[in-house]
Design a protein around this nucleic acid. Structure first.
Lengths: 224, 224
DNA sequence: GGCCGTCCCTTACGCTGTAAGCCCAGCGTC
DNA sequence: GACGCTGGGCTTACAGCGTAAGGGACGGCC
């Protein structure tokens, strides 16, 4: 009713909706991505979106594909020809992680989606390709995929939760519970996080991620 | 209105609600656990639950604690005195896994809960204790916790999704996409899953889990 | 007896995803 | 030019969610 003819507005399209949804998720988190909110962002009503996506699940799948496209692009850009399987794998996974760091909501989305998108399957297929070229048996490559888990896509699930545990409140609480968790308090006291950049959650910083990744890659190389 | 006085019904309590919620989750999955549904299960209205739980999040946290209690109990029962750190850790984690296998919804719940419950913290604290006794530095123990991630609690996150990817439909689809994912199709053809018992999702069977676990434990032992 | 908690119920609100149907612009065809 | 079709947008509406607000019945204590 308002708007008159100020701007004719680009026609809706799947692409447009997905871009809007990404913007919303980046700004306010995944739970802020609702049909009404996306509609508002593109200047349309919620129900109009259904002409371009089958339902909300379809939209979320679209988000996954979009993030995967970003990853693929970056992976391609940062590839180095002479790499060993291990170097190539490492580089690729860390590239994926860079994209995940830009979209903090993506890990949770990837984990939650009930069916795996073709893009994700293809990503893993290429990883298997790398390992095969490096002399892996199919069996070991299979094991490797499972051992890596979500780490193959550049993130580790956070049981020590993201953000919420940070802050002085939880630190004080932890100190009060020192008798209940003596080892953890001792550990935290010694480690004294200085929280560098590149942190997804509380502790999942770059160094942490790379330590676990190399632990796995080395172990795999030894079993090759 | 109905019911008359057929059965006076046990008074509500936190315990009662949690037990009912577990039953519902076991039967129909985590998303079936709604306040109304839990209320129905205990013969009360949804709003009555709020006298025993602060809100739904509190109820879910209660579920986590309940599962953790089950784990602790089993861990205690299966402990063996003479174990090395590695044996003890392995045994403990596999015990936790047995409980997770009985509550397929638990992994997702653990991953989703925004704040970590005291029970979970204590569980990890004991793991650190084991490692310390095994000669770990705090720093390495810290790395170890992160490297293990959710595996410390007995499950690995499923990017190859649970159940949904199984069945002939997805297998046929995969065959049709053979040119797009040549390595994966080759791998799957060779592996020929015979799906033993103890499977959480598609491939996260016991053997898979233990392979990754040992890969990590061995790697950690070497860096000790 | 009067009062105060505790426990449960009823009602209602705002939010979600989405089914159903209307309306109108643009088009192809005669 | 008039016709009807089609497709993209809007409006309305519904069921289900978590939960805020308040009412009424019971028991224990002064």
């Amino acid at each position: 009713m308002a708007q008159a003819n100020s701007e004719p507005r680009a026609p809706l399209s799947r692409e447009l909706l997905l871009r809007a949804a990404v913007a919303i998720a980046d700004a306010d988190g995944l739970e802020a991505v609702t049909m009404r909110r996306v509609g508002e962002a593109v200047g349309a009503e919620a129900m109009s979106l259904y002409h371009h996506v089958a339902n909300k699940g379809d939209l979320l799948d679209g988000l996954v594909d979009l993030v995967m496209a970003e990853i693929d692009e970056r992976v391609e850009r940062t590839a180095v020809p002479g790499d060993t399987w291990q170097q190539a794998m490492r580089r690729r996974i860390l590239s994926a992680r860079e994209v995940m760091l830009q979209h903090p909501w993506a890990p949770r989305l990837f984990e939650t989606r009930p069916t795996m998108s073709l893009a994700v399957v293809r990503y893993h297929d290429r990883l298997v390709g790398l390992m095969r070229a490096g002399g892996f048996s199919y069996d070991l490559a299979h094991h490797a995929l499972h051992a890596l888990g979500s780490r193959a896509l550049g993130f580790s699930q956070e049981l020590f939760d993201p953000a919420a545990s940070a802050g002085p409140a939880s630190e004080r609480m932890l100190r009060e519970l020192a008798d209940q968790v003596p080892h953890l308090t001792g550990m935290l006291a010694e480690i004294a996080h200085d929280d560098p950049v590149g942190t997804i959650g509380w502790c999942d910083d770059q160094a942490e991620f790379e330590f676990a990744l190399d632990l796995l890659l080395d172990g795999l190389d030894r079993r090759r």
